[in-house]
Design a protein around this nucleic acid. Structure first.
Lengths: 226, 226
DNA sequence: CAATGGATGATACTCAGTTTCATGACCGAG
DNA sequence: CTCGGTCATGAAACTGAGTATCATCCATTG
């Protein structure tokens, strides 16, 4: 476990210095106006080290997406069809509260991603990787039918959309209680997807009585289309 | 209406020549291995003209996203809350059948986007613009409540996911009849989102009889949670 | 014919990202 | 202590995308 001498001397890693310098310069001069050389110089490292540590200019902003993705996968993998809904809800919370735990840093990042198209796009890409992961697991829990696959795809999209909405509201400080809102949002998603959407075996002629919030016209329309 | 002399002479626009050359070179040598200079040279135009016409290397692959987006917006704008579901279904079909009408070209593009990360990402970006557009209109049709906004976001995500699934299946030639599949997929989305997801005014104590495919245990569970 | 304007091409520039090589600190073995 | 190896860093050159500038050419118009 050999830490760099610079790190020992200054008490922080070169990576942290780079991130600091990057956010500061982006804030002051703008993303496009700040070159990698500027960042490296301000952080007291070489251009080479910058790319060795972060791979690209965009990645200074999004440090640990891979780690979060791994955490999500871990949570989803530790589940079966039985506990699927719970697993999905938990996994979403893993992501959400990771960002919330970042606090002001997450908000500074949001300010950048709202402003700079390239960064917004980068964020979209990572979001789609979450969606892909969710889809993969949700699909695996279903039978292989096309309708079930579609359900997996729709639900994954819904889960990510719900998460994004709550996160974005929190980032914009429009959200009092993220715990409450993510609970509500996930409840809404679950309500959408838990009632069996697929015609499944049932005794023909069976009659079931349920309460509904729809008015009579809507109910009549549904009955007619059956 | 002055067409270029090259165009007159060769009977095709410089843009078409560039697209042809690009796809051919990408196929033969790969996307990353083909430089813009190579494409321009093969198409018999200058590097300058390439960027003037397409703006970026990626845009040779995705020519008319803006046009499709405008068509979608037009279809959505020509609608009210009453015909909302129909408008959304129609708008989705506009996109889907535009790609299907491209035929082999769409499949060549798919082969590239499956292979080259940068292009897959670019495609994702444009997909998110559709989603954003759908969300905007669907949200406008609801009341302004947070739950209604979430519903708009979820439904937009679902609509785009459903479209993407059908398109991808068609591109992979896994899809016999795209008309049928998009009908099914949109029916699934509509089934998900048309039953009022929000507790709404209804005469207390009203009883409605509907047929369901759920088994008794599931129904009992639903009743218990009401 | 001369003037104008729009499209094209040539050139030079910035900057992100890659590759290669040199340096220098640390560590274990002799 | 010294040699040899490894690893982190830095320096420098290179490729290629995208931008900006300027000259040119050709068709139209007066």
């Amino acid at each position: 476990m050999t830490q760099s001498r610079e790190e020992d001397r200054r008490g922080r890693s070169a990576a942290a210095a780079i991130v600091d310098a990057a956010f500061r310069l982006f804030n002051e001069f703008g993303y496009d106006e700040t070159s990698v050389d500027d960042i490296a110089a301000a952080a007291g490292v070489s251009r080479s080290s910058f790319f060795r540590l972060f791979g690209s200019k965009e990645m200074v902003i999004f440090p640990d997406h891979d780690a979060i993705l791994a955490a999500v996968e871990e949570r989803l993998a530790a589940s079966t069809e039985k506990s699927a809904i719970l697993a999905v809800s938990d996994a979403v919370r893993v992501v959400l509260f990771h960002y919330i735990a970042e606090g002001p840093l997450a908000r500074r990042r949001y300010q950048l991603t709202s402003t700079v198209p390239a960064l917004r796009e980068r964020e979209l890409i990572s979001g789609s990787r979450y969606q892909q992961l969710f889809r993969q697991y949700i699909s695996a829990w279903g039978d292989g039918s096309e309708e079930s696959e579609r359900r997996g795809e729709l639900m994954a999209a819904g889960v990510v959309a719900a998460h994004n909405r709550v996160l974005r509201r929190w980032l914009r400080e429009e959200c009092e209680d993220p715990h409450l809102e993510i609970d509500e949002a996930m409840a809404q998603v679950n309500a959408l997807f838990t009632p069996a959407p697929v015609p499944a075996p049932v005794a023909p002629g069976a009659i079931v009585v349920v309460r509904t919030d729809q008015d009579l016209a809507a109910v009549a329309e549904q009955l007619r289309s059956m």
